[in-house]
Nucleic acid binder design. Structure first.
Length: 814
RNA sequence: GCCGAAGUGGCGGAAUGGCAGACGCGCUACGUUCAGGGCGUAGUGUCCGUACGGGCGUGUGAGUUCAAAUCUCACCUUCGGCACCA
C-alpha cells in the first residue's frame, strides 16, 4: 500500500491531539504579546452551514498566522442563543425553547470542531446561560442607573388577532404570518438606550482600522444634520404649546407656506377640526399599514390630509395650514416639518397636488421668481420675499435667521440625527428578562443586583398565538416588591438579543467570573479586540451597538480606550453553486459536513478561501474542489516521496529555487496579513509547481530543498492545519507546526537579477526587453532604442516624448 | 426608494493607473502496463493570417491620461442593509 494522502486518516487524529495538548488555550498570564482574534458567534439555528465555515475558517487562518508570529492568541467561540426561532420551534413543535436551543448548540459545537479551527473552547460563552444573562441584566441596570435607559412610546407591528407584537420578518405583505390578520403599526411603551447621546463620537473612527465602506454606511446611518428648531404657534384655542419643527434650511423660513406633521404626532388628535376628523382618522389608519421603506420612497406619490388647523409662521406672520402626511416620520427630528415647496422636492410635489402656496425665498439666474415655479430649486443667490433679510447671500442666511430666532426666543440652532435611540425591550419569551418589578406603590423598581439573574421560568406553555408565556406564568410574574414587600408584578418584556452580542466579546476575557462581568485584570490582559471578523450584513446595527456599548462602559469606568475592536474585516456572502443565496427551497445548499466527509476539512477550508476574494463573497463551486485536492496531494507527494538530493547542484538552479521560496514567503505573508486568501493559495500553488520542476530537473541542493519543504508547510499551516501537522511530523520536526514560527523572507535570496520591461509605442505593446536589475534609466532608454523592432517601427521620426516607468515599461509617443 | 458594494474568457477569479485573463475548474490533443472521476506535457478570449504578426476585447455610453478593468460623470443589472431575523 502506497503512502497516499488520506485526510480521513489524519484529520481526526490531529484534532484529538490538539485538544488533549490544549495548544490553542490562551493563558491569561503569558509573556508573549496578546492578540485577541474574534469572529462573530453563530445563532444556534440547528445546523452549521457553509456560511459559518465561510466566516470562521478564514478567521481561523488569520488567528493561526498571529500565533505563528509569536502572539498569545485568544480566539474564542460561543453561541448567540436567545432569539425568535427558538420560540417558533416551541410553538410549532411543542418543545421547550431551552431544550431546542441547547440541543442545537451541542450539535453545532460538534460540527464546528470538524473545522479544525484553533478555538479556545474553555472560554465558550452561551448568551442564554443564566451565568451570562445575569450580566446582560446587570448591564441593563447600569445603563438605567446612569440615565442611559429610558421608557418611551414607539411604533411596533401589532397583530390584533394574536394580540402580540410581531418582528418585521413575521409580517408578510402587511399580514401576520401566523394568523393572516392585517398588521397595524401601534405606539407602544418600550425601553430605549440613549445611543444618540454618543452619535457624534460614533461618527469618529480615530485609531481604528475599519473598512471605508463600513464607516461610510455607519456615518450615513447616523445621518447627522445641522439646522435649527423653530417654534410655530398653533392657532387652536386648546393648544397652548408651540409646534416645534426641525429644519436644515432655516434660511428658507419665509417660504414655509404650510406645515406637515407625522400622522402619529401627539398633536394630531387635539388640532383636528370636526369637519376634517373623518378624513384624518382614515389617513392615520392607512398610514399604520404602510411600511417605513414605502413611506420614505422618493418615487411614491405624496399623500396627506388637512387637519383643518393653522399655525403662524413666526417670521412671515402668515397663517399657514397644518397637514399630516406619511412622508414625515415621527421618529425623525421633531416629527414635524415646515414645508418650503419652493426649495424642497417633496414639499413641492405635495404643494402641487393639494394646491398649496409656493413662495421662493432666493433669486436664481435660471428662474423667473415672479412666475409660478415649474420645479423647486435647492439653492439660490440672495434672499427675496424675506422681509428684513432680503438681499442676504445664501452663505450668510442660515446664521442670520437662526440668530434672530434665538434673540426672539422662537428657535435655536440644532443638530439632529437619523439614528434613533436603540429600542432594547421585546415582547417575547426567549430572551433575558428585563430586571424590573412593577409595584402599585413604588412604580418601576429595578431588581437588586443581589437578586440577579432573573431566571426565565421553565416548562411554560406556548400558545399558538405567539403571545409571550411570561405573561401567563402567574407564579413567575407575582413577586413581592423589593422596596415594600407588598405584592407586585415582574416586567414581562425581555431584552433585545443585540444586547447580548454587544458585550459578549468582553465576557470571553473572563467567561466564568461569578462576581462581575469580567475582572479588571482580564480586561487589561485582553481588551480591546485586535481583529474582528464577520459578515458585512452587520455593518450598521450590531457594529454600532457594540461600539456604543463599549463607550458607555468606558464612561462607567469599566473598560479603557474608546473602541472595542481595533481592526475589522467583513467577509461577503457565500452563495450556492448557482450563484444564489443557499436555501432549501432552491435546493442549492452545500452542507459542510458532507464536504468534510468527501474531501476532508483541509480541502474544504482551502476551497472556500480559493473561490474568490473573501470580502466579496460569491458562489461556492464544489466542482472546482478537485483543483484544491490535487494541490494538497502534490504537497503531500513533494514531502513524502523520495527526492534525489545532492550537495553539488548547479548554483544557478539552487539560487532559483531559493529565490522562489523567499519570494513566496514575501508574497504569502503580504496576502495573509491582508485577508487575501484566494491569491495566497495561488502563490502557494505556484511554489509547489516550482518545487516539482526543480525536483524533476535532477538532483536538488539538499539545503535549498529542505528549506523549500519547511517553508511550504509553514506557509500552508494556517490554511490546512491537519495535513501540514502530519507532514511536519514526518519530516522530523517537533510538535506542533502551529506553534512554530512564521518564516521571514530574506531579500538577498528573493532578489531578482534581471527585470523585463514592456516596450510600448503609442501605448501599444510592441516588444519586451530584459535588463539587469540595477540598469539605470539611461541604460533602459538606450536598450529600447537599440531594439530592431523599435528601429523598424520608429524609423526616422522623432518621438514627441518617451515615458519611462522604472521596472515596468518604456512608452515611445509620437 | 434610500445607504453601501459588485459587474472581466465556457466557469470561479487575477491584475487598483503601466503586458488583461495569474491561479484553478472545464475543454482539446498527446504521453503514461492508466481498465473507472489517476498522473504528466502542451494548448485554450475573439477575429484575420500557413506563419511572423495584426485588429478587437473587462455591463452600456461619454470623458480625463502618453497609458484606463482600474480615475470622473451618466445609465443598466445583481447583491448586502434599512432599526422586533441574527
Amino acid at each position: 500500500m502506497t503512502d497516499r494522502y488520506n485526510p480521513h486518516a489524519i484529520e481526526p487524529k490531529w484534532r484529538e491531539r490538539w485538544e488533549e495538548s490544549r495548544i490553542y488555550a490562551a493563558p491569561d498570564d503569558d509573556p508573549r504579546p496578546k492578540w485577541y482574534a474574534l469572529t462573530m458567534f453563530p445563532y444556534p439555528s440547528g445546523d452549521l452551514h457553509t456560511g459559518h465555515w465561510y466566516a470562521m475558517a478564514p478567521s481561523d487562518v488569520a488567528a493561526r498566522y498571529r500565533r505563528m508570529l509569536g502572539y498569545n492568541v485568544m480566539f474564542p467561540m460561543g453561541f448567540d442563543s436567545f432569539g425568535l426561532p427558538a420560540e417558533n420551534a416551541a410553538i410549532k413543535r411543542n418543545i421547550d425553547p431551552k431544550e431546542w436551543t441547547y440541543h442545537n448548540i451541542d450539535r453545532m459545537r460538534g460540527q464546528l470542531k470538524l473545522m479544525g479551527a484553533s478555538f479556545d473552547w474553555d472560554r465558550e460563552v452561551i448568551t442564554s446561560d443564566p451565568e451570562f444573562y445575569k450580566w446582560t441584566q446587570w448591564w441593563f441596570l447600569q445603563f438605567y442607573k446612569r440615565g442611559l435607559a429610558y421608557e418611551a412610546e414607539s411604533l411596533a407591528n401589532w397583530c390584533p388577532g394574536c394580540q402580540t407584537v410581531l418582528a418585521n420578518e413575521q409580517v408578510i405583505d402587511g399580514r401576520c404570518e401566523r394568523s393572516d390578520d392585517l398588521v397595524e403599526r401601534k405606539m407602544m411603551r418600550q425601553w430605549f438606550f440613549k445611543i444618540t447621546a454618543y452619535a457624534d463620537e460614533l461618527l469618529r473612527y480615530d485609531n481604528i482600522d475599519w473598512p471605508e465602506r463600513i464607516k461610510t454606511m455607519q456615518r450615513n446611518w447616523i445621518g447627522r444634520s445641522e439646522g435649527a428648531q423653530l417654534k410655530f404657534a398653533v392657532d387652536v384655542p386648546a393648544v397652548s404649546e408651540p409646534l416645534t419643527v426641525f429644519t436644515t434650511r432655516p434660511d428658507t423660513v419665509f417660504g414655509a407656506t404650510f406645515m406637515v406633521i407625522a400622522p402619529e404626532h401627539s398633536l394630531v388628535d387635539r388640532i383636528t377640526t370636526v369637519e376634517q376628523r373623518g378624513e384624518i382618522d382614515a389617513y392615520v389608519v392607512a398610514t399604520g399599514r404602510t411600511t417605513e421603506i414605502d413611506r420614505l420612497s422618493t418615487e411614491r406619490e405624496k399623500t396627506g390630509a388637512f387637519t383643518g388647523a393653522y399655525a403662524i409662521n413666526p417670521f412671515s406672520g402668515e397663517r399657514i395650514p397644518i397637514w399630516i402626511a406619511d412622508y414625515v416620520l415621527v421618529t425623525y427630528g421633531t416629527g414635524a416639518i415646515m414645508a418650503v415647496p419652493a426649495h424642497d422636492q417633496r414639499d413641492f410635489a405635495f404643494a402641487k397636488k393639494y394646491g398649496l402656496k409656493i413662495v421662493p425665498t432666493y433669486d436664481h439666474p435660471d428662474v423667473d421668481t415672479t412666475k409660478p415655479l415649474e420645479a423647486p430649486y435647492a439653492h439660490g443667490g440672495r434672499m427675496i420675499n424675506s422681509g428684513p433679510f432680503d438681499g442676504t447671500p445664501e452663505a450668510d442666511a442660515a446664521a442670520k435667521v437662526v440668530a434672530q430666532a434665538e434673540s426672539q426666543g422662537i428657535g435655536e440652532g440644532a443638530v439632529t440625527y437619523r439614528l434613533r435611540d436603540w429600542s432594547v425591550s421585546r415582547q417575547r419569551f426567549w430572551g433575558a428578562p428585563l430586571p424590573f418589578i412593577h409595584c402599585p406603590t413604588h412604580g418601576t423598581v429595578p431588581v437588586p443586583d443581589s437578586d440577579l439573574p432573573v431566571i426565565l421560568p421553565e416548562n411554560v406553555e406556548f400558545k399558538p398565538t405567539g403571545q409571550s408565556p411570561l405573561q401567563l406564568t402567574e407564579e413567575w410574574v407575582n413577586v413581592p416588591c423589593p422596596v415594600c414587600g407588598e405584592p407586585a408584578k415582574r416586567e414581562t418584556d425581555t431584552l433585545d438579543t443585540f444586547m447580548c452580542s454587544s458585550w459578549y466579546q468582553m465576557r470571553y476575557a473572563d467567561p466564568h467570573n461569578p462576581e462581575r462581568p469580567f475582572s479588571k485584570a482580564a480586561a487589561e490582559q485582553w481588551f480591546p479586540v485586535d481583529q474582528y471578523t464577520g459578515g458585512a450584513e452587520h455593518a450598521v446595527m450590531h457594529l454600532l451597538y457594540t461600539r456604543f456599548f463599549w463607550k458607555a462602559a468606558r464612561d462607567m469606568g469599566l473598560v479603557e480606550g474608546d473602541e472595542p475592536m481595533k481592526r475589522l474585516v467583513n467577509q461577503g456572502v457565500i452563495l450556492g453553486p448557482d450563484g444564489n443565496r443557499m436555501s432549501k427551497s432552491r435546493g442549492n445548499v452545500v452542507a459542510p459536513d458532507d464536504q468534510v466527509d468527501k474531501w476532508g476539512a483541509d480541502a474544504f477550508r482551502c476551497q472556500l478561501m480559493f473561490v474568490g476574494p473573501w470580502d466579496q463573497g460569491g458562489p461556492y463551486n464544489p466542482t472546482g474542489m478537485s483543483g484544491i485536492v490535487r494541490w494538497l496531494n502534490r504537497v503531500w507527494t513533494l514531502v513524502v516521496e523520495p527526492v534525489r538530493l545532492t550537495d553539488s547542484a548547479p548554483p544557478e538552479e539552487t539560487k532559483a529555487l531559493r529565490r522562489t521560496t523567499h519570494k513566496t514567503i514575501a508574497s504569502v505573508t503580504e496576502e495573509i496579513a491582508n485577508f487575501r486568501f484566494n491569491t495566497m493559495i495561488s502563490r502557494l500553488m505556484e511554489h509547489s509547481t516550482a518545487m516539482q520542476k526543480a525536483r524533476d530537473a535532477g538532483p536538488v541542493d539538499r539545503e535549498a530543498w529542505e528549506e523549500a519543504v519547511r517553508t511550504a508547510l509553514l506557509l500552508t499551516a494556517p490554511l490546512a492545519p491537519h495535513i501540514t501537522e502530519e507532514l511536519w511530523e514526518r519530516i522530523g520536526q517537533p510538535y506542533s507546526i502551529h506553534l512554530a514560527s512564521w518564516p521571514t523572507a530574506d531579500p538577498a535570496f528573493a532578489h531578482d537579477d534581471e527585470v523585463e520591461l514592456v516596450v510600448q509605442i503609442n501605448g501599444k505593446v510592441r516588444d519586451h526587453v530584459t535588463l539587469p536589475a540595477e540598469a539605470s534609466e539611461a541604460d533602459a532608454r538606450a536598450a529600447v532604442m537599440a531594439l530592431p523592432r523599435v528601429a523598424e517601427l520608429v524609423g526616422d521620426s522623432v518621438p514627441k516624448k518617451v515615458i519611462y516607468v522604472p521596472g515596468r515599461l518604456v512608452n515611445i509617443v509620437f
